[in-house]
Design a protein around this nucleic acid. Structure first.
Lengths: 235, 235
DNA sequence: CGCCAGTTTGACTAGTATCAAGGTTAGTGG
DNA sequence: CCACTAACCTTGATACTAGTCAAACTGGCG
């Protein structure tokens, strides 16, 4: 797997860090052989492998420690569509908290690591998990905000959607402390097309147009944003 | 205001009911003159009035007790777009929990009532609010699920978007115990068009086509779903 | 070096926005 | 209660955007 990875979130930056006993463990508690109980070991996930499957019983909420993931739903007609991406520091499976089952299948776009929180850690009859819930609330609120972008896609033209997409990616990378104006996209043009509700060809053409307009540089999956604010203003 | 209202959620059905002291108050505590402390009075909101404004400091999270609301964002270009709808039993302002400010302006589509939860009720340094957080987690997880529909809109044709929209509305009404196959839409065609990213004319034509196909009956804002599953399968 | 998945480019067609006008409904005031 | 007005909704004709089909190209990997 020679593909370059997305960088990992440092645990201190993770919204869930004070919930995550992995973090404590690494620091001080490792020697004590403390029972990890119900929280957050880290797990490797190889490229193409799924973290959770739509319709399966909700057992764990996940947080991305390293790598990038896509959520996929299968429409009634059998067609698959990408509904979102999850980067380091973000959560996976949020919809399961209320429904009791996963609503989307989440697949690794590259080798990565996830931390996980068993459903029992925030079930109704627990008392001593105030901190966990606080962290989850924050992360979930963030997801609500991220998904808000997605909803706006329908209202834009192809070129604008791609611009908005790049802007969103950039903002999220920036939030988690990664480079915001020069990065390698972890997903294929097909994934982007599916996510934006466009044909692959249209995505490709849009990239070229933005390039021609001097807003970005593109070479395959490598992207440099020449003028991020122009991208936004354009949308 | 002669317009017929959307029905109200009964408090026992509300996801936030065990968080809501209003409910207790109505039941047993009213006589005791119990301090309501930091939670959930109900407030009337007249048609066209906003509950919260984008960019303002996040002070309260709201729950819809009665009525229907729309969220609106103003794009960089100055254009306004509808990003979502909120019905009885659903929450308003979720994105503020993490960002500290509202991300959208939320406006009443008709006279209604909201319950509200001050920011302090679930801030990090409180201990005794486990139940509140539990209720909020549930409600927020629901919102994540609802917004997932929105993201799928971009991937569909006009007619399919409208079908999916009606299906989504129906599902949400059903979840909160209202009639799921016959209802009056609280929002205008303009709102629907903005939300779906279509021209008003296209929305109108789509309604007529679905009608012609025998999937629905429409008369202005009154809708009867003849075959809800067909609507979904169609999408 | 050559294969293969992923990406780009081109030509043509289908679907949707736009422009324009007519019709309907809800809310207002007499 | 009815007439009036403004907002809302529907319908029609045309222009343009994006989807589809087809094919060539590129880069990573055996």
């Amino acid at each position: 797997m020679a593909q370059k990875k997305q960088p990992a979130v440092l645990c201190p930056q993770c919204e869930l860090n004070d919930v995550c006993r992995q973090y404590e463990k690494d620091d001080a508690l490792r020697a004590a052989g403390e029972s990890l109980g119900d929280v957050t070991p880290q797990n490797n996930v190889a490229k193409g492998v799924s973290v959770c499957q739509a319709e399966n019983r909700f057992e764990y909420l996940y947080a991305v420690h390293e790598g990038a993931f896509k959520s996929v739903v299968t429409l009634p007609g059998g067609e698959e569509r990408v509904t979102g991406f999850h980067f380091a520091g973000e959560i996976i499976g949020a919809e399961g908290v209320s429904t009791g089952k996963y609503g989307r299948t989440v697949v690794a776009l590259q080798d990565g690591q996830v931390c996980y929180f068993p459903e029992t850690a925030f079930s109704a009859d627990e008392n001593d998990n105030s901190k966990i819930r606080q962290g989850l609330l924050m992360a979930m609120s963030h997801q609500v905000k991220n998904e808000q972008w997605t909803g706006l896609m329908a209202a834009h033209r192809a070129e604008q959607r791609v611009a908005l997409f790049l802007f969103m990616i950039s903002k999220r990378f920036e939030f988690h402390g990664f480079s915001s104006d020069e990065f390698r996209l972890p997903m294929s043009r097909d994934d982007i097309a599916s996510y934006l509700g466009l044909a692959v060809e249209t995505v490709s053409r849009s990239f070229q147009k933005l390039k021609g307009a001097g807003m970005i540089q593109v070479s395959g999956r490598n992207v440099i944003l020449e003028d991020r604010d122009a991208l936004q203003g354009f949308s």
